[in-house]
Design a binder for these strands. Sequence first.
DNA 1: TATCATTGTGAAATCGGTTTCACGCCTCGG
DNA 2: CCGAGGCGTGAAACCGATTTCACAATGATA
Lengths: 334, 334
Amino acid sequence: MSAKARPTYSAIAKAAGVSEATVSRVLNNDERVNPERTAAVMKAVEELGYRRHRAATALASGRTGLIAVVIDDDLSVFSDPFWGTVTSGISRVLMENHLQTVLMVTSVNSVDGPVAHYLEGREVDGAIFFQLHKDALVRKLAKQGLPIVITGSPHTDTDLYFVDTDNFGGGYAATKHLMSRGCKKVAIITGDIETTAGHQRLDGYNQVYREFGRVPNKSLIRQGDYSYESGQVQMEHLLAEHPDVDAVFACNDLMALGAIAAIEAAGKSVPDDVAVIGFDDSVSSRTSRPQLSTIRQDITALGEAAAELMIAQLNGEPVESRIMPVELVLRESA
Amino acid sequence: MSAKARPTYSAIAKAAGVSEATVSRVLNNDERVNPERTAAVMKAVEELGYRRHRAATALASGRTGLIAVVIDDDLSVFSDPFWGTVTSGISRVLMENHLQTVLMVTSVNSVDGPVAHYLEGREVDGAIFFQLHKDALVRKLAKQGLPIVITGSPHTDTDLYFVDTDNFGGGYAATKHLMSRGCKKVAIITGDIETTAGHQRLDGYNQVYREFGRVPNKSLIRQGDYSYESGQVQMEHLLAEHPDVDAVFACNDLMALGAIAAIEAAGKSVPDDVAVIGFDDSVSSRTSRPQLSTIRQDITALGEAAAELMIAQLNGEPVESRIMPVELVLRESA
DNA sequence: TATCATTGTGAAATCGGTTTCACGCCTCGG
DNA sequence: CCGAGGCGTGAAACCGATTTCACAATGATA
């Protein structure tokens, strides 16, 4: 009674009375196999409980069945639930397509680091990058023919495929709502303006002003860094310079919460004196008081889209970058 | 000018004037190779820029160089920054040991689902599980000899290796602080009592009462479910039944925030009328007002410990489950 | 009817390492 | 001086799939 060893092609071929080559053809959906033999192989596969040996397939075919998800940890982005959620969307779609997700949390900036070696070594079939800051490595890999998808907009204009949130639309919707609400002096606390996302949200803000035939006062545009503290201090500056400011669009929820703290510390109330809108629809936007109005993005869908772009590339199908829609969620703060 | 093809053993063997077997020995640190040949091989490896072909190694040796991290998505735990942080700790340590992290966000409860097939197929060298609810699959895999580490305590008493936060110690420290502060009527809002973690925190709470020679009133022990809302309603019940309750230990920050909302809604103040301590040291614990006193765990360290246990198992070294220390962080709420 | 394509199939080579096995050489004990 | 034992080494088998290539059978064409 030997332990049931894992069946291989050889066993299936024997059981089905065909050659191993035919087994391979059937299992890879080669059309040209006689239906009867196909059926025989399928039956044998079923009965023996055959399962592909990934390593053997990888060696012979060059396809590893693995997709890397590369996260730049210089930003410790992974402690942000945002990335966890994106990743789970990616993972789900990949798994449905019989691909596995290899997670690499690391500093990606080096064109010659361990990650670079790993990816260049063709140990994965493709790579999905998060939040790129330098794209030298990515360009290099792309040139070598490695399928790539970027989550978040690429740093520069480029021909790389990407999926991103509609940052412009979010900035536009938030600002438009504040204006339509009757606010006269709408400020913005931006995030890192170096990033495309940061810039696009600001562009949306400016666009609303333009449509209203106005130009925002330069000093209504304050640069934060996505932290609670920066929201707080920038709001303090705003209140000092513009005591009559009556609305703020903060480019993420954390800064919005900081801003609210500053507003209330100044003895004013939200939203009556100053309306506030954040961005992200994070958990704290629901638990804060007042509850925060914010821009919601379907984060899981973003991940799923990234995975779909990757799969399309692998299949040689036409691929197009995607911008995912956002939604204004109105709660108490605006 | 052909593109420089990836060098293989054959190239190195030729360059170093030895056989492929010897190359393999050198690269796998086989002691018995003549130092001169070792040097020659190393030199050739260096000069040709050789890099191992993962699939070939996997096929021949059976070691894939991959460790699965399995996350039960029934709980959508991955949108909790906690798990992202743990994962990044795991990933870092594994990568240092030339192992890659394969992420599987999925429903693990089935002993016969795709995850089960994947893991049973030996496509990874080991698996790290998060937040187990049913351990049938894990036990089955362990029986098959797959190295396993559980992050969070296993469901039942077991011989499986695990790493966990000192839940008991956290519950103890929080409650002890509240008592020492002079609070007479310290309540607890527990999380899911079915989980080991939930139970252990409660045990810590009970232990303090015991040490003070007291027994907590049954109705001071309220069961929540880790959600903001549950913290809120349980606190309302507490205030109704015990108008003189003067402290609450909530088993996570979210419930603590809900409790604070309920306390303030009842016209009482935190911490003067009722002191509150949470658990997790989440971001919102710092941004809430009043800032939340809480129990901090070193989450990255937890992940690193999990990875280390895995590596020890792979190396056949002695392995011991680990309980990671926690720290009481005092802010404004207690 | 003779010839050329086309189609389905299996034998065998291949992917790039690891591991077994046998052999030659050297040392040591009797 | 002979045989046993140990050590370093290379040839070759092996891991489990994929893919090339040759060949036989069939159908189409002239």
